[in-house]
């Protein structure tokens, strides 16, 4: 970013917004926004507490489980959809429906099915993330150059060898892009799930803070979640960057 000919690092915009937040908070115009410095201070009081740590552990565990499940189901589902027209016709409509559906509305149903516990949160994360992973994997598999598949075939590759050594690797850029978006949706899923169940993890904490009007703590918790989502997405996009040349090669 450049302003008046000076190069300004990206972090500057964050600082600016923090400043605006601070000013608005200090003016005391809106009750919901305590000054930013107070939020940061709350961060330091909230994070070391046992209830935060417990919530963090249960959140990370249910997030990780849901994501693992979403990847384990989404990638093979997308691969099958990309490879076999029959599967695509059978599952395509549903995947496309779910990828844009307001899934939060389904959480109460999930709660009925899986109870008021971690299982519901795991399933919510799964449902938020799996569809986009499947769709992107499908696109990736579709874009594998046919000559690569023919090449494997001509050198005597079995179906399994073609799938594992050619198709999955050739579609990796799209699969990773799907997983990155899936992770971000998964974070949404874990929060929505916990909020609706509201007796476990960060959901319980959010409930506690907002009910008692502890806005600084509430925002501190939000910051933690934002940072978590950004960190995950950053990690995957670094991985994506390392294999970015794939896609370039494919065009030629």
């Amino acid at each position: 970013m450049t302003v008046f000919g000076h190069r300004i690092p990206m972090m500057a915009s964050l600082l600016l917004w923090a400043l605006v937040w601070e000013v608005v908070g200090r003016l005391g115009l809106v009750l919901l926004f305590p000054p930013f410095t107070e939020v940061v201070a709350a961060l330091f009081t909230v994070v070391p507490t046992q209830s935060f740590l417990d919530a963090a552990v249960i959140t990370v565990v249910s997030f990780a489980l849901g994501m693992a499940l979403a990847i384990a189901v989404g990638v093979p589902l997308g691969a099958l959809m990309g490879r076999f027209t029959a599967v695509d016709q059978f599952a395509g409509m549903w995947v496309n429906l779910f990828v844009s559906a307001p899934l939060s509305a389904l959480v109460p149903v999930i709660m009925l099915l899986f109870g008021m516990g971690t299982a519901t949160v795991v399933v919510t994360v799964f449902l938020f993330a799996v569809w986009i992973i499947a769709l992107d994997t499908r696109a990736g598999i579709r874009h594998v150059p046919p000559s690569l598949v023919e090449m494997a075939h001509s050198f005597g590759a079995t179906r399994w060898q073609t799938a594992s050594r050619i198709l999955l690797l050739a579609a990796l850029p799209e699969i990773l892009a799907g997983i990155r978006v899936g992770l971000i949706r998964g974070v949404k899923g874990v929060v929505v799930g916990q909020l609706l169940v509201s007796i476990i993890g960060f959901g319980a904490l959010f409930e506690l803070y907002s009910r008692n009007f502890l806005m600084a703590e509430f925002w501190a918790l939000t910051l933690v979640l934002f940072a978590f989502a950004l960190l995950l997405s950053g990690l995957v996009s670094r991985l994506e960057h390392r294999i970015a040349y794939y896609a370039g090669v494919r065009q030629s």
Partner: peptide
């Protein structure tokens, strides 16, 4: 089908970019 007695050289090279 394909066999070890024949090898193919592709127009677009068909190399694995990874």
């Amino acid at each position: 089908g394909p066999g070890p007695d024949r090898a193919f050289v592709f127009q677009d090279f068909a190399l694995m970019p990874w």
